[in-house]
Nucleic acid binder design. Structure first.
Lengths: 137, 137
DNA sequence: TATCTTCACGTACAGATGTACTGTTCGTTA
DNA sequence: TAACGAACAGTACATCTGTACGTGAAGATA
């Protein structure tokens, strides 16, 4: 393992949008970027290029346009990213992060219940809309 | 708010160690760094200097040595950092991160129970050692 | 007192990052 | 068919990051 280089924040953002689209061109990714994060088309292009170079994405030229898709599974990237964060910010201990999410990002008792049922492998309550879209900042 | 600059990964790591010590000199932080992350004394020094310049730490010269302490509360930094991550990696939705932690970092049903009681403000089960110190990589 | 140790402080420097422009090429439309 | 717009590939560039070295002063030691 030549130790894949980690993704930077910006790259991560663009990668996430691509993952959602599964397969997409620069333009499609650009248009799918969250509104408040409208970066230049060329910037998105650069990010996608770098993501490909780093080995996270495949880019195939289809006709005149390059179509990108995940090469490394999102789940893997997420795991590595979160592991890294937990390591640096909480010395590798997961619980403080959970606590933080509960205290600072509005995870409710019901959310936990949902999570617990998922864990136990039997859906219980009828699933509500996730109540923690944004913290009530 | 002149928009405080965010901390880089390395800075975060050093900051966390300092927070644990409350007040500490470069040497103390250096020695308290996790073993597998033994960076050079001078490197720690640079990080602390940068952290001070960025406004995250106070550094007071006491005699011949500079003693650092938090200026911005850890909780604040953690909130900003986690918010940023959730934003970029999960489009601002907290639940997927919770799910990830459960599925990939060994948060157990019992851990959730603990969390839930904390949430409800009444400790229930006698508190065990947190079972999720490290993911069973 | 001559030397060693320890710091603070300034400096260094390659590589990563955020952000974008430019030149070129190929279908499209006037 | 000549001008136009879209997409790619290459280049740019100021900052930030990770990592550390060198210098000079102050205190400890021989």
């Amino acid at each position: 393992m030549t130790e894949r280089q980690m993704l930077s924040k910006g790259e991560l953002e663009v990668a996430r949008v691509l993952w959602e689209l599964k397969r997409a061109t620069v333009r499609e990714v650009h248009e799918a970027m969250p509104v408040r994060r409208k970066m230049d088309f060329a910037t998105v292009q650069t990010y996608l290029r770098r993501l490909e170079k780093k080995g996270y994405l495949n880019g195939r030229l289809e006709g005149r346009t390059r179509v990108y898709s995940a090469k490394i599974k999102p789940k893997t990237v997420i795991r590595e990213t979160v592991d890294d964060l937990v390591e640096r910010l909480f010395a590798g201990d997961t619980m403080p992060l959970m606590q933080h999410l509960i205290e600072e990002r509005g995870i409710t008792s019901d959310d936990l219940e949902t999570l617990k049922s998922m864990l136990d492998g039997r859906p219980s309550k009828p699933k509500r809309e996730s109540s923690s879209k944004r913290s009530p900042s």
